[in-house]
């Protein structure tokens, strides 16, 4: 068993309105920054023991599928590194 860190990034699907990101973008503009778009995402770092990186990725993938992301509105990706 090796200890891995799986990083799960959950984002709204493209095209799904993100009112919090829009509000954040406007706040940055009020501070004088120039930007054309802003997207936000949630990131989860999960330490876990697994036989291989792909086994760790599979488990993190299932975590995203079942809880961390809502497939109706979210896309997600999983990256695994040895901790």
């Amino acid at each position: 068993m090796t200890t891995y860190t799986a990083t799960v990034t959950v984002r709204l699907k493209r095209g799904v309105l993100d009112p919090e990101a829009e509000t954040t973008k406007r706040a940055l503009e009020r501070l004088g920054f120039e930007l054309s778009a802003l997207r936000s995402a949630d990131q989860f770092e999960i330490d876990l023991d697994a036989d291989s990186a792909s086994a760790a990725a599979d488990r993190a993938d299932e975590m995203a599928e079942r809880l961390l992301a809502n497939p109706t509105i979210h896309d997600y990706d999983v990256e695994v590194d040895e901790a």
């Binding site: 799904v16 309105l17 109706t72």
Partner: peptide, 17 residues
């Protein structure tokens, strides 16, 4: 209900934020 898939879709942040 939606999160548990009893019903379809999702209820998320109001457009007004």
């Amino acid at each position: 209900g939606c999160e548990s898939k009893l019903t379809p879709g999702a209820f998320t942040t109001n457009a007004s934020a």
